[in-house]
Nucleic acid binder design. Structure first.
Lengths: 193, 193
DNA sequence: CGAAAATTTGACATGACTCAACTGGAGTGG
DNA sequence: CCACTCCAGTTGAGTCATGTCAAATTTTCG
C-alpha cells in the first residue's frame, strides 16, 4: 500500500515534488478500520489527521439525552479530524466512527508540524484544503438558518447524491438536524410530487 | 495610520520579522467605512480580505423573499471576506455591510498571493486563522442541528457578551435563524427566570 | 435463521412563523 | 420645545413546522 491516493489528492491543488512525497511517505501510517470501529471517542485527544483512502466515516456529537448529531461525513479522498482537539490537545467532544470497512492514512501532530517546517508546500496545501472545507460549511450554515428541513434535504440529495446510497436515512436526519420520523414524512411527501 | 493592529494580530500565532512587516505594509490599504456602507454586494466578486481595525460588520445573504440571513459578524481584529468568491473570482451571493463607522485594512488577491510566495509565514498564519474560524463554525453548526432557539440564544449571549450591546435583536435573530418576534418571546421568557 | 437496526405510521404536543397591531424611544424639522 | 416620523421591540391569535412517543413492519447483517 502506498500514498498514491494522498499524493494525487494534493496534486489537485499543488503538485508534490519527489522529496515532498518521500517525506510524506515517511511521516504517515496506513490502517485498516472495521465497520463500527472508532478512530476518535469523546474524552480522547484527537491525535491524527485522517485521510480516507477507501470507506466512509461519520463524525458526531452525543448530547445530554444520548442523541447523536452528525457534524460531518468523510468518504474517499476526504480528510477528517477534530481540528480543535488536534491543535489544543484537549479532550474531544466528538466521535469518529467507520460506517463501512475502511482504509485510511494518518499523520500525527509532530509529523505534521515537521512536514510544515520542512516543506512550506504543506502549509499551503492544508490551508487550501481547509479554506474549501470552510466555504462548504458556511453554505451549510446559511442553509441551516434560512431553509426548512425539506429544502435542506433536497439540497443534500443534490449535493451528495452518491452518499444517499451508502448511508441510512437515520444518518442523514442526524446530519440535517431533524428526527428520523420527520425525515420519513419529508421523503414521503417528496415521492408524491 | 499603520498596520500595527494587524501585526499584533498575527503575532498571537507567529511573530512577523521586519521584512515581513514591511511587505505587509506595502501590500495593504487602509479605508474608512461609514455606517451602512457596503464593502461587498451580491453579484460582485469579493476582491479583498478585510481586517477590521475598528468598527463592526455583518456578512449576510438575502433570500428569495428578500429576507436577510446573517452568516457572520466581524468586530475589531476579525477578518471578513467571502472566501469562496475571493478565490474563485465568481460573483458573490453575500453582502458585507458596516453596522458602525469602521476602519479597515484590506489586501487584494494578487498582493495576498505575493505575500504567500515571498514569505511562507503568511501561508501558515492564514492557515491557522482559518483553522480557528473553521472550528468556531463547526461548533455553531453543531448547536444549530442539536439545540432549540432558546439554547442557541443563551449560548450566543455567553459566547459574544460584548456584541449584545452593539447590535440590535433583529441582527441577533437573523444570525440565530429565528424571527425577531420569536426571539422577543425567548428574551421575555429568559428574563422571568 | 434470529437479533438488531431502520423505516414507516399516526396521534398528539411543542417549537417556531406569520400577520397585524401596538408601544416606546431616537432623531428631525418646524 | 413640540409634533412627527421611523424603527426596534413587543404582544397575541392563528397556523404551520417539527418533535415525541408508541407500535407495527421491513431490512440488514452477523
Amino acid at each position: 500500500m502506498g500514498i498514491e491516493p494522498l499524493v494525487a489528492h494534493f496534486s489537485k491543488y499543488l503538485p508534490l515534488e519527489e522529496p515532498e512525497q518521500e517525506e510524506l511517505r515517511n511521516r504517515t501510517i496506513h490502517r485498516s478500520i472495521k465497520r463500527r470501529q472508532f478512530i476518535l471517542q469523546e474524552g480522547d485527544v484527537c491525535r491524527h489527521y485522517t485521510f480516507v483512502v477507501a470507506g466512509l466515516f461519520k463524525m458526531y456529537m452525543v448530547d445530554d439525552n444520548g442523541k447523536e448529531h452528525n457534524l460531518q461525513f468523510a468518504v474517499e479522498n476526504n480528510w477528517i479530524a477534530d481540528i480543535g482537539s488536534f491543535h489544543s490537545e484537549l479532550p474531544s467532544e466528538l466521535y469518529i466512527e467507520a460506517l463501512e470497512p475502511s482504509n485510511i492514512i494518518q499523520i500525527n501532530k509532530p509529523d505534521l508540524l515537521s512536514l510544515y517546517t520542512s516543506f512550506p508546500a504543506f502549509d499551503r496545501n492544508f490551508r487550501v484544503l481547509i479554506e474549501n472545507a470552510f466555504v462548504s460549511l458556511q453554505k451549510r450554515m446559511l442553509q441551516s438558518i434560512s431553509s426548512t428541513a425539506e429544502e435542506r434535504y433536497i439540497n443534500f440529495m443534490e449535493t451528495y447524491p452518491d452518499l444517499l446510497n451508502r448511508i441510512s436515512s437515520v444518518q442523514v436526519a442526524s446530519y440535517l438536524g431533524v428526527t428520523p420520523e420527520f425525515l420519513s414524512a419529508i421523503r414521503k411527501k417528496i415521492s408524491k410530487s
